[in-house]
Amino acid sequence: MLAFSYVVAPHAETALSLVCGGSNATFIAGGTDILQLLQEGVIAPPSLIDINALPFSGVQTEQGEARIGALTRLSDVADDPGIRQRFPLLVQALQETASPQVRNMATVGGNLLQRTRCLYFRDATVPCNKRQPGSGCPAWDGLNRINAIFGGSDRCIAANPGDMAVALLALDADLLVQNVEGERRMRLADLYRMPDENPQHETTLASGELITAVLLPSNEAAGHSYYLKVRDRASFEWALVSVAAALEMDGTRVHRARIVAGGVGTKPWRLMRVEEALQGRPLTPDLARQAGNRAGDGAAPRAGNAFKVPMLQRAVERALLTAGGIA
């Protein structure tokens, strides 16, 4: 770990000006991921800009679009009565995230930007295209059981970690982003990049841009949604496979479905084939199974993670049955 300077930013303007312009400074909020990265030497920023004092926390859910400040702690989001009532899918995802202690510290904005758990990314002494562009991807032919089956290549198969982004994508969330020039609104679906040629670039945020809020449109899925997480131990562990299912029902028919998977893609992975299979059809155990079987379409598993394909298929089926109330 290299020495770094540490600045507590009193205003957003200060924070944004300190990080912009290729300074390589890094924002720190809850710090639950960044401290691991610093200690392991995975990142070595010259300075950390602490943004905890900025006015970006709190939840507003009265009506219409809900707004969650990016500095809101995960535990506060999960405990918010309005969120619990209108977006139970998000609450389920948060309750399956990390541990209570981590949720008390971790922020919404930071959680969206947590780095992959790929074993080679986390060990600073080995090659990794994401950490050290051009050095290679040992995961491709190595230990890849936790890696992605969608969206990867021999350049990078690091899975996007985390639960919240998976649920938020199923809820069709938007983001508010600030930079020195002002504020812009973007779709969460546009936040993450595919690794392609440059796996070191994980998001579409420009240097110095800060997520300030998550916006959730109203939806009719609250009564028919479910977050299912499969992992190696009962708690405090990233997903091998997770599924966020948000169904808007018209009687027994699926009016609209948004189905997103975690643990399987280089970004939170929307399962369009599954959604298509559900569209306009009565939800039955047979349909859930058929739709679940489409979940692996397009997957390109490696030796160590081929099991994720059947696991994902059955997870989608189970999530649909539970969300639809026919389990």
Partner: peptide
């Protein structure tokens, strides 16, 4: 990882 001779986790 036998290629790298180390424990990766």
């Amino acid at each position: 990882d036998a290629r790298l001779g180390r424990v990766m986790n």
